[in-house]
Design a protein around this nucleic acid. Sequence first.
DNA 1: TAGATTGTTAATCGATTAACAATC
DNA 2: TAGATTGTTAATCGATTAACAATC
Lengths: 209, 209
Amino acid sequence: MKKENVSDAVIRRLPRYYRQLTELCAKGVVRISSHSLGQEMNITASQIRQDLSCFGEFGQQGYGYNVEELHTEIGHILGVDNDYHLIMIGVGNLGHALLQNFHFAQAGFTVDAAFDVSPSVTGTRVNGVPIYSMEKLDDYIRAHRVDVVVLTLPQSIAQEIADRLIDLGVRGFWNFTNVEITCGQPDVKIENIHFADSLLTLSYRIANR
Amino acid sequence: MKKENVSDAVIRRLPRYYRQLTELCAKGVVRISSHSLGQEMNITASQIRQDLSCFGEFGQQGYGYNVEELHTEIGHILGVDNDYHLIMIGVGNLGHALLQNFHFAQAGFTVDAAFDVSPSVTGTRVNGVPIYSMEKLDDYIRAHRVDVVVLTLPQSIAQEIADRLIDLGVRGFWNFTNVEITCGQPDVKIENIHFADSLLTLSYRIANR
DNA sequence: TAGATTGTTAATCGATTAACAATC
DNA sequence: TAGATTGTTAATCGATTAACAATC
């Protein structure tokens, strides 16, 4: 793999490629050209070839790409076979919904534990995941590998908890709160799901149709 | 307002500006320069001024911007005072969580109804929103204004339902399913929340730290 | 072989940043 | 007035698209 200077735009397209290739695999399609793939995804063939060239040479002249092989390769680039370990902080409605419905394993993540302040959920399990009291958080992190923390807690305490976790060595955050988690360290990676931002862009585009 | 050729990148920054200005308002800050705002948001002052210039002239030389005024203006641009009407399709865990926790009103949306196939939820209300059977969907849309439909239903039926709704005149979708909803008509606006894509980009960035 | 399609280099396009005259 | 800061034009940078030699 080359992987020097991979732009954010490219990275954001990788999961889409992965998704499309999963579908093609399921359909039993064996090979595909950048041109056809581009048509299906509304992307130029050039862009696809350019994107893939950041990571290696996966195609064959005159033939195109082997669907299954490319699927595996992109999965590998995304790290789906790295078995990352993840915990969740805040098991309210949204946390519950994610634990129940989201296929963490499909993205290569194992959900080991969740934490909450409310005694009504601590001690229980949601979809097999044990819910612990927040007091056990620090000890847990010291004792276990935690690659990503899902922040599904009230936004008022999000930054504070994140700071504490960063101190404890956590380097990945999946942030569902409507605030920007800030952190000077460049090795700390924060990915945001900002529901409100998303809905507001939709609002804009409806208003300016 | 000018609003010709506003790029997607600019549109995606608007909610962030709006959020930051909401905070500044709450803090009682009266005026701010593009330079200070940029520092707070990790954006260049140039970019802020360039972005805002797409929509009008909101500042004053030598002074900067009035925080409250700019907040109102950007809210207006985003359409938060348009009172859009919204319904939800699929009231599983995620739909429930959104109805319970998400502040639709803050983004200018009124949630009028939700629809589901399951008799265990139809006929009930969640956070004041009535849940109807899917059979009532078509009649409802014919009789009411529906600006946006939230798709929190199984991905297997997402495209099919979306097609049906587009036929009935719906022009805005907030899609939470892990599939790309396709539609030829350019006046139909689709905004995606792709959880899996988001987590996979985080996985990539952790893997390539 | 001839046709198809890659990976890569070059050209174009668009977005970000810098500079500055205008002016509060 | 002098200092600060805007809105806008010009310069730069980066991302997308086109072109094409290499080759399966």
